[in-house]
Amino acid sequence: MDPTLTDNQKRLLGAIFGRGAGDASGAVSRWLGRPVTVTVSAVKQVDLAEAAEILGPSDTLVAACPMELMGALTGQIILVFEDRSGLATVDLLLHQPIGTTTEWGELEQSAARETANIVGCAYLNSLAAHLPILESPSSSLAGGSLLPGPPGFRHEFAASLLEFALMDQAIRSDRLLVVNSTFAIEETRLDWSLLFVPSGASLEALHACLESA
């Protein structure tokens, strides 16, 4: 089956993820102690080469906190910080001047993982409540839950990170689905991204269920 989503299906997914972004905004605002807005910037189904550039230039060094997605949908949800932006986030959390933190030690990695945990859980709770495929009795995913695994921490090239995350889809399809959400504090965009990358099997399930939605 070719799991290419139509524009309408992508719009529907975007609207659902928009609700998740709204809930994630509240959670991350409380965590950072500042108003943060999370926005779904893209629901993209693109070829491999385009997917590798979603986070910017391929050799950009990023700090990534991947969480394995388990339950009704499988795949990865990954909070990605451009390196300096991630270190600045640690400074915010530790109430110290921006620029104080210069490397990813144990404490810094722990702060990044906790941020990912808070954002990811808020997002997934909202998705679980609003994804019609989890509510429809006719859906193969009906009644399922969305569970995040514990966040990891990786320092990685942007393109390599995406290659790892998208491999499961690439086995099944030439068109890869990525939902990207971006973050801003008081109108200033942060160089963070929250990526939702379903597995190949979940992409096919999403496609089938959205087709009948």
Binding site: P66, Q76, R154, L161, F164, A165, M167, I171
Partner: peptide, 13 residues
């Protein structure tokens, strides 16, 4: 041929 995710498709691939 690296593998970042435990148990993911990338190990076998």
């Amino acid at each position: 041929g690296a593998s970042m995710f435990q148990g993911g498709a990338s190990i076998d691939i």
